[in-house]
């Protein structure tokens, strides 16, 4: 069920390489399901530097607050502004419309430390 056009972290973020060194990042179907109804997403500003597996923001559901960890090192070039007014997009379409930010990747080799779709699915089945 996880598409194989992107890589996945153990913290349930995804990163998808686009043209050049641009990448799109967000959280997985599993992550949004665990969180429940998301009401607030706190993301870094455009221009900020985010670092591999370090905290980059927070996501709040009705019941809980969770840290977001960056799946890649780089500079944020765009954040999904729609999530400010429509955080429910993360629940409805976490891999598409609910994307969180676009990043200029500074070290593509980090992607090798992330999981493939197949590995991530295996990782998930080990959690339940």
């Amino acid at each position: 069920m996880s598409p194989d056009d992107r890589k996945y972290s153990k913290e349930h973020e995804w990163v998808k390489m686009e043209d050049g060194n641009q990448a799109l990042a967000g959280i997985t179907v599993y992550a949004q399901d665990q969180l429940g109804d998301i009401v607030y997403v706190d993301l870094p500003k455009t221009g900020a530097t985010i670092r591999f597996m370090e905290k980059m923001g927070e996501v709040e559901s009705v019941k809980a607050v969770s840290d977001l960890f960056s799946p890649i090192t780089g500079e944020v070039t765009e954040v999904n502004e729609r999530l400010l007014d429509h955080p429910e997009l993360v629940n409805e379409d976490p891999l598409g419309e609910g994307w969180m930010m676009r990043v200029t990747v500074s070290d593509a080799a980090e992607l090798d430390q992330l999981m493939s779709a197949e590995e991530y699915e295996a990782f998930l089945s080990g959690l339940s």
Binding site: G36, D37, V39, S61, V62, K63, E88, N91
Partner: peptide, 9 residues
Amino acid sequence: PVQYSGILG
């Protein structure tokens, strides 16, 4: 049960 379809709904 803490939720069924979602807390907001």
